[in-house]
Each structure stands twice: as C-alpha cells, then as structure tokens.
Amino acid sequence: MIHLERINAIAVMLLMVAICFSAGAFAESHQHEQSKILALSAVPIASGSFVQRKYFKVLKHPIKSQGELYFDVSIGLLWQTEQPIYSALLLKKSGLFTENDNGDSQEIKSASAISQVLLDIMSGDSEKLAKNFTINASAIDHCLSLTPKLTQLAKIIDNVQLCHIDTPEKNQQNLNDINHIILHEHSGNRTEITLQLTPMTMLPEAVRARLQ
C-alpha cells in the first residue's frame, strides 16, 4: 500500500515536472504549430500584378486600383499602382518611401508596418507571420484568419484574411499559395487585394536600383 502511495506521489511529481517543462516549451511549440497551420510556399523573389478594392463604410462602391509589384525579401518591395493613377510605394531596408512621376522619393515615417506584412505574406514567411499574428481557421473555405499581436499593427488592422481562390488563370498554384488578401480595419473599412505572382531568381536591374 505504502509502496503504491510512493509510486503515486512520484508519478504526481513527475507529472508536475513535465507540466512545468511543457509550459515553458508551450509558447515555442505553439508558434511552431501556428507556422505549420500556415505552411505557405516560400517565394523569396517574385514579380506580379495586383488588383486592389478598397471598401469604405461610408462609400457605396469600392475604389479599385491595379498595378504591378516586385519583391525580393533581401532588398524590399515595390508596389506600383498604374490605374486609376500612377503611384509607387517602395519598402526599402531604410524605410518606406513614395515615389512621384519624376522618380523623386519621399520617406513616409512610421508607416512601414502594413507594407512589411504584405511582403511577409507574399513571400510566404510563415515563421514571421506566426510570430506577429494569432492564426485561426476562417469561416471561408481556403482562408485563414490572422489577428495582429503587435500593437502597432493592431491599431490599424483588426484582422487579415489570407485566401487561396481558384481562378481560371492559375499561376503555378497549389493550395499553399495565397492569392487573395483582405485587410479589415477597425473603422469597418477593408482592403481586398487579388494577386498574381510569378517567382523569379532575380529582380530586373531597374527595379533593384529603385529598391537600393
């Protein structure tokens, strides 16, 4: 009897020790799990096109724009709107810049967070996304719901939906490729972006020069 009680006590202690250890490891394993849920295809360098629709609560119709994009995770992202007007946004190592028609750039301070998130999503940086967002399954098929952990992002974005939508013009897609992003803002406004990406080995020299 006494022997059994001792065994029980030891078992309880071992269990407690195991719980303590696992609690410490939980955070790390949870993040790992989260990144596994995402399991995005890694695309470090790519070019492509986008169509963006901005839905403002106060507007009846969305505002549509479209253009080209280029990114290389090692140097940055070029987000170039062609329609309805030309505008360029450059996320460089040194910060976020806008570029006018003449090619003159101007830094936009404290506003690089959203562009960085877009770059992380498009390049499939699951680890970084898992670190900065809480990831859940979405009610919509082939979509995941990301809630920002960082205050800086959380102040602007309520939630990000990453979706894979089957489209007639498939771009070497599999289910792990994201081609539709929805940014929900606290204000109730949302931005929907549809992407079409082509992985590359190197960005065109002219684009690289603009991102340097």
Partner: peptide
C-alpha cells in the same frame, strides 16, 4: 486624393474620409 485613397490601409484616410 486618389493617391491617398488607393494606398494600402492608409489609416489617415480611413479615419478622416467620412
């Protein structure tokens, strides 16, 4: 105005457009 409105999640536009 268009340049501002098409910027991805421009919080200044979102907060003041109404």
């Amino acid at each position: 105005a268009t340049k501002q409105i098409i910027q991805v999640a421009n919080p200044f536009v979102s907060e003041t457009i109404a």
